[in-house]
């Protein structure tokens, strides 16, 4: 499956990764090569095969409903790029 520029642009938007115009072709060809490579999967018929998303098909373990975490805001925000009054600051969100 060869990707065209528009598709690469769409993926880069979805993935929130800026791609410079000059690099789009390079990405298109590299991604296409990888996709062609993985499409070898189609050599094998997988009809009626159940997908496996966790090794050993394990089941979920659940925890009791108790509060075990307490305020560590200063600690956790010591690594934040931009904060004010305990809030994380980001460019204006427009709804």
């Amino acid at each position: 499956m060869a990707l065209d520029k528009q598709t690469v642009y769409k993926i880069s938007r979805l993935a929130r990764i800026h791609v410079d115009k000059v690099d789009i072709d390079r990405y298109a060809s590299q991604l296409s090569t990888i996709l062609e490579f993985v499409e070898q999967m189609n050599r094998i018929d997988t009809d009626n095969v159940a997908p496996l998303s966790h090794p050993q098909d394990r089941l979920l373990r659940m925890r009791a409903d108790s509060v075990t975490e307490h305020d560590r805001r200063d600690d956790l925000q010591s690594v934040a790029p931009m904060i004010e009054n305990g809030l994380y600051l980001v460019p204006k969100v427009i709804e």
Binding site: T68, E69, L87
Partner: peptide, 26 residues
């Protein structure tokens, strides 16, 4: 519930900003 769905932080309403957001929540 007392605690969050996937972490042990409290769900109570009206706390100071980000004082009930633990390492899992952030």
């Amino acid at each position: 519930t007392n605690s969050k769905i996937f972490s042990g932080a409290s769900t109570s309403y009206g706390a100071k900003p980000n004082t009930q957001a633990c390492e899992v929540d952030i």
